[in-house]
């Protein structure tokens, strides 16, 4: 197990390293002098030279990369071109908003999805099973940002049940502001998780330990809820871990649509102002988040199911 864990995290680190290097080289490979873009056409040559030196752009590329990694290992992602604040400060200030949105989305969609899937598996081929299947296929198809826009139109602008912009202050207000974006992000996951749980439930229900539990005369309800479901929700853990990238992507759109603070809004804003250190920092943090959550999902899976340790 320990061997698997070290290997898995080693791979994650390697992936992260390659990803960051590629990203770094891509930014440097772009035609056009970033300093000129940042300062605009009317900047004096002295000012340009000063900023070039301050950003370390006058060094050879391999040295820039070394300096970048040196700083990174010390937890320094550079400074914002405009405000002079540390990029890490800015990114970590926005991160909680994105995380709370993602967490809320997973929470409601996984709860509902598991319940639907378990119910459908316990009553296969009934009307409810069919309806759940049809709904889940349709929900899977709905892209989060379109759902977000339609939800904004119907529930915030037209019916005015929920607030349309911002993240709110205070616990209840924040919760109120979370409802629509979390609904939009989670909707496609409900169907996906329901189908997943239903399929793995049906498989688990045929296994010997469930049969044994039944033979002991344990109530059907308890067999389903305790003996079968506990194993059947394993794939959900992996799917959520691997789906972190999709969740992040959906969160970016939801933040724009509902004008919420967060990583997504930060990235879009810094792209429009060509604030590369911030773009780089946020992409790096979100990539790290994704890589770590995928590795964690693999680990949890390996912990719960020893067979997963050997496969690639």
């Amino acid at each position: 197990m320990l061997k698997f864990a070290t290997r898995r995290f080693g791979l994650s680190l390697l992936i992260l390293f390659v990803a960051v290097t590629v990203m770094f080289l891509m930014i440097r490979a772009v035609p056009g002098d970033p300093v000129q873009i940042m300062l605009g056409p009317r900047a004096t040559p002295e000012l340009q030279a000063q900023l070039t030196a301050a950003l370390g752009l006058d060094q050879p590329i391999w040295k820039q990369l070394l300096i970048f990694y040196g700083n990174l290992l010390q937890g320094d992602l550079g400074t914002d071109v405009f405000s002079g604040r540390a990029v890490t400060d800015i990114v970590f200030q926005q991160l909680p908003y994105t995380l709370e949105l993602i967490f809320a989305s997973i929470l409601w969609s996984a709860t509902l999805g598991i319940a639907l899937g378990a119910y459908a598996a316990a009553h296969p081929n009934t009307l409810i099973d069919r309806i759940a299947a049809a709904i889940s296929v349709s929900f899977v198809a709905a892209p989060a940002f379109v759902v977000a826009l339609l939800a904004l139109l119907v529930f915030a602008v037209h019916l005015q049940w929920f607030p349309a912009i911002g993240a709110g202050d205070g616990f209840l207000d924040r919760l109120d502001h979370l409802v629509l974006p979390a609904f939009a992000i989670g909707l496609s996951w409900v169907g996906y998780i329901a189908r997943l749980v239903r399929a793995s439930m049906l498989e688990v229900m045929g296994e010997s330990h469930v049969r044994t539990a039944r033979a002991f005369g344990i109530a059907e309800r308890r067999v389903v809820m305790v003996y079968a479901l506990r194993i059947a929700i394993l794939p959900v853990v992996t799917v959520i871990g691997v789906g972190m990238g999709f969740l992040l992507s959906s969160a970016v759109f939801a933040e724009i649509v509902f004008a919420r603070p967060g990583l997504g809004k930060l990235v879009i804003d810094s792209i429009t102002t060509r604030n590369y250190p911030i773009v780089m920092g946020s992409v790096l943090i979100s990539t790290a988040l994704f890589v770590v959550s995928t590795a964690l999902a693999d680990l949890i899976n390996a912990l719960l199911d020893p067979r997963a340790r050997t496969s690639h």
Partner: peptide, 17 residues
């Protein structure tokens, strides 16, 4: 490595560049 970039973040970075 390609998969480890969240799609939209990757897209945004490339478009920005």
């Amino acid at each position: 490595t390609i998969r480890s970039f969240p799609t939209v973040m990757f897209a945004l970075a490339v478009v920005a560049l």
